[in-house]
Every structure is written in structure tokens, then in C-alpha cells.
Design a protein around this nucleic acid. Structure first.
Length: 473
RNA sequence: GGUGGCGUGGCCAAGUGGUAAGGCAAUGGAUUGCAAAUCCAUGAUCCCCGGUUCAAAUCCGGGCGCCACCUCCA
């Protein structure tokens, strides 16, 4: 298995700290507003990693945080009007921020389920880990990495020489390249690059007691605290969206490594942006789609999975409805293959080419995944496979092996509907029978009339060599 | 200004030294009562200009274009 590591900028062999076991932390959602499709690219990437590692035989422990405390709107230049997003929405909706956080957390989990993303081992909430964060901040102060200023606590970036190793944004570069954007307008900070560990703001709706008075934690410390609690001092994998690289993950490294004096995360994995109209899909910009909106338009969770997984996770992914249709059509090809082409196959002589094709496809599939989760390559292997099998025309038992293999691969992609009990109501069964009778009499007009009627009701009829088949559209 | 990424056929996209996977769409053919599905066939001087090499989409240098981060953001 090879993975692209943001820390080195290279694809490198993945070797977990403990053989066969992977400890993975995923930066989760900020629960103040419904997540949109772009957000889910990061969560699908985490899911894909977990599924791939599991497929390859690793035992994976997966932790995803829930950021329910909200972030500082202006981490560096917060002032009296600086407001937390959660708090802002709460005011607008005249609701308790806790209520919104819990409601949005549930929506998030609903959306994960709709995307067929199995739950992580834990979804720790930031607000449930305030004592752990405070303890870490105290340690940072003791070790000289942080300082208090009037109820605020800041991390001193210059106390950590490794700052910038993840993103390339070292303090000198930030200084040189600031372009007027880094402004030292907070005089209680020793350096404009220092970031908040604990904030004092009487107007803030979520408040906790601390050694520095009432206040609330800075954004970055929660991930250092929770990853440590659930996964230990060194993580194998830490994931997130591209926006997390700087400053969030850079700051996490500074905090955790300053405390434990050891590598915080061995492999940093970040997905690329989901782009719409040439730019990123973003909560703070207008154009975006939530899952319920897309379901309303007739796409289902597996179509969205197909769209989000069919190309490599690392680069930018353009989004528009035409591309989503392309993905839906591509998924339809696989679904059709397992649900119809390979069903009710006739008995017949064995063909050794079928087993050989499965072996070859499995090897190609696995090799692609091991190469930095090359999903496009793995998909291509399956397309080549299905075409070859369709050409061969396997017998009944061979077709069962083919389906089993496709299901095996789908443990990674999660794009195939399980063929549950397939039944139609009696009226429809009767119409199908009536049409068959009409066809036997070559009454094509009546036959086509029934076919059109059923199509309008979402049942598509297909006349095959094995008789009439139907599928839901 | 700094940092990171991207530029491959109509669309999407693998491939990072040996002469371009795959999907979507389109067209023709086989099959079909007609369809659908399926199978077969058809398309690329890999952004530009130099250079290295027997050999470059792939390495090096220089351009051009696009995106993002540096402020909350997956």
C-alpha cells in the first residue's frame, strides 16, 4: 500500500506503527449548518481509506470529531464583534446553539447513512472534551509553548521550530509573503502568527470555567485533545479537506508535538476541492448542493458515491449536474451487470476463461487500490472485466462467482444496490403477463402500450433471450 | 507577495521515461417485432517553447492559463 503524504508531498509506502493495525483520525464537520456535497468529499475520502485498508486486511480504528463549539470567525484578529459561526446562526434562528449543534449533528449522521458510509468507531464532540483541552493548554504553558494574556491563551509559534513543515507556510515565509494580510492588530499577541488556545469573550454563548477565567477553546486544540484521548500520541493517518492543511493541521502538529515530543501523525491525507463553476463549493459562497436537494432531483446516495469515488481523491473534482449524470450512468452499467446480465443465466459447459478473468480483475483492482487508492484505475479494471464477461457469456454457476467477485469489490466502493427481495404488486404482474400474451399473438400495439404504461410507473421491461425481465428506473 | 495544486480526445479521467487505461456522449454494424441491455467497430501530434535521452505526456529550464490556501471553510 502506498499513500500520498502531504507532509512529504510524495507517494510513499504506508507502514502503520503497529503491524496490521491502523489508527486513523478524520477531521469531521462543524455542525452549524447542513453539510453540502463538497464537504462530503472529505468524508467519502476518509471512508474510502477505511474501506480500502480493511479490504487489504488491516484493522482500522476510525475516529471522527464533531466540532460543536464553532470556530472563531477571526482567529487572528478577533475583536469584540468577533463571533462564532454557531453563535451567529443561533442568533439568526433565535435558538440555543446547543440545539442547533445537536440537530445538525443528527443531520450529518443521516447524510452519512444516505451515502452508505459506515459509522466510525467514535464521533467525539468538542464540547465533551473541554477538560482534556484545558489540561493540554496548561501543559503547553508549563513547557513554555503558550502564554496567557488577559484571559486569552496563545500558542507561541516561534517556540516550535517545525512550524510550517506541513503546509510550507513557515513563519518567515508568512512574514515575507503576507502581502498586507497578516496584521498585528492584537497587541496581546507576541507574534501575529500565534494562534488562540483559549479565548475570553463575555458575549460568547458557550462558556466554560478555566484557570484563565470563563471562556471557550480555540479551534485547533480540540483535535489535538481528542485524537490523543482516543488514538494515542502518534496517529497513523490523519485526514481532512484541503482547507485544513493550513492553518488547522499545521497548528495541531505544533500543539501535539510540543507536548509529547514525538511525531503527531505519520501520514497526512487530504482530498482535493470539489469545484463548481470553476471554483470551490463552499458554505460561505453561494453555489452548493446539500444531499436532500440532490435526492430531490432524483439522484440516490450511491450515485453520489459513484461521482465522488470514480476519480482520484487528491486532485480537484469538477462538479455539475451533467457530470453527476455521467457518474449515474457509469454506476448504472455496473448495477445492470450484477442485477440483470448475470442473473438467471442458462446452464452450460464450464469456461475456464471466466475464472481467469476474475483472477486478473482482482489483481488489477487490488494493485490500483494499493497505489495511493487509484479508484479510477480500479473502476477501469472492473469495466474491462464486465465487458469481457459479457462477451464470454458465463453459465449459471460461473455467473454466481462473477457476482460474488463484484460484491467483494463493492466492499470498497459501496455503489451497488443489494438485490433484496424483488417483487412487484399483483396488478403489475398481471400487466406483464397480459403483454406477454399480446406479444405471443404479435399484437405489438397492445404490447408497446403496456410497456409504455409500466415505464411511466417506473418499471422498465426488457425482452431477453431468457424471457421478459423488469427493473425499476 | 508567499505557499500548495492543476492543465491528457466533445465531456470526465488513469497513466510520471519505452511510443496514450477506462467511463459518459456520438456514429456505424450485430442482436431485437420495435426498443432497452449486451457485443463489435470508429476518435488524441497528452497547454506552449527550449533542453537532457537511443527513447518524454512522463525528467530539467522558461513561459501561458486555471484553482485554492495565507481570514471561518471538507
Amino acid at each position: 500500500m502506498k499513500l500520498h503524504n502531504t507532509l512529504t508531498g510524495k507517494v510513499e509506502p504506508f507502514i502503520p506503527l503497529q503491524e496490521g493495525e491502523v489508527r486513523m483520525y478524520n477531521c469531521g464537520p462543524t455542525v452549524y449548518k447542513r453539510q453540502h456535497l463538497g464537504n462530503f468529499r472529505a468524508f467519502i475520502t476518509a471512508d474510502l481509506l477505511r474501506r480500502t485498508l480493511t479490504y487489504l486486511g488491516y484493522r482500522v480504528t476510525q475516529i471522527m470529531n464533531i466540532t460543536d463549539v464553532g470556530h472563531l470567525t477571526e482567529d487572528d484578529v478577533a475583536d469584540a464583534s468577533g463571533e462564532d459561526k454557531l453563535q451567529k446562526i443561533a442568533k439568526e434562528r433565535k435558538l440555543d446553539p446547543w440545539e442547533i449543534a445537536r440537530e445538525q449533528e443528527q443531520f450529518f449522521k443521516d447524510d452519512l447513512a444516505a451515502l452508505h458510509i459506515p459509522p466510525a468507531d467514535e464521533y467525539p464532540r468538542a464540547t465533551d472534551h473541554i477538560p482534556e483541552m484545558i489540561a493540554m493548554i496548561e501543559t503547553l504553558i508549563e513547557k513554555g509553548h503558550a502564554y496567557e494574556a488577559d484571559g486569552n491563551v496563545y500558542f507561541s509559534v516561534e517556540s516550535f521550530p517545525g512550524y510550517g513543515k506541513l503546509s510550507g507556510n513557515t513563519p518567515d515565509k508568512l512574514e515575507a509573503g503576507a502581502g498586507g494580510r497578516v496584521v498585528a492588530d492584537r497587541d496581546d499577541k507576541r507574534s501575529p502568527h500565534d494562534f488562540a488556545l483559549w479565548k475570553r469573550d463575555p458575549k460568547h454563548l458557550m462558556q466554560w470555567d478555566s484557570p484563565w477565567g470563563k471562556g471557550f477553546p480555540g479551534w485547533h486544540i480540540e483535535c489535538s485533545a481528542m485524537s490523543h484521548k482516543y488514538l494515542g500520541e502518534t496517529l497513523d493517518i490523519h485526514t481532512g479537506g484541503p482547507d485544513n492543511i493550513f492553518p488547522h493541521h499545521e497548528c495541531e502538529i505544533a500543539q501535539s508535538e510540543s507536548i509529547f515530543n514525538k511525531t503527531f501523525t505519520r501520514y497526512w491525507v487530504h482530498c482535493g476541492w470539489l469545484e463548481i463553476g470553476g471554483g470551490k463549493m463552499s458554505k460561505s459562497k453561494g453555489e452548493m448542493y446539500t444531499l436532500p436537494e440532490l435526492f430531490e432531483m432524483g439522484y440516490d446516495g450511491r450515485d453520489l458515491r459513484m461521482f465522488l469515488t470514480r476519480q482520484s481523491y487528491g486532485g480537484p473534482l469538477p462538479f455539475d449536474l451533467d457530470l453527476l449524470d455521467q457518474a449515474k450512468a457509469e454506476r448504472g452499467r455496473f448495477q445492470n451487470f450484477v442485477s440483470y446480465e448475470m442473473r438467471e443465466r442458462p446452464e452450460g459447459p464450464d469456461n475456464p476463461a471466466v475464472g481467469a478473468a476474475i483472477d486478473a480483475a482482482r489483481a488489477a483492482f487490488r494493485a490500483a487500490l494499493e497505489d495511493n487508492i487509484n479508484t479510477a484505475g480500479a473502476m477501469a479494471a472492473l469495466h474491462t472485466f464486465t465487458t469481457e464477461i459479457n462477451r464470454i457469456g458465463p453459465n449459471r454457476s460461473e455467473a454466481e462467482n462473477v457476482i460474488a467477485f463484484m460484491r467483494e469489490c463493492d466492499a470498497v466502493f459501496g455503489i451497488l444496490d443489494p438485490d433484496g427481495a424483488r417483487s412487484l404488486d399483483e396488478e403489475i404482474e398481471q400487466l406483464i403477463a397480459e403483454r406477454q400474451a399480446a406479444r405471443d399473438k404479435k399484437n405489438w400495439a397492445r404490447s408497446d402500450e403496456i410497456r409504455d404504461e409500466l415505464l411511466a410507473r417506473g418499471i422498465e421491461l426488457l425482452d431477453t433471450a431468457q424471457g421478459v425481465r423488469w427493473k425499476k428506473t
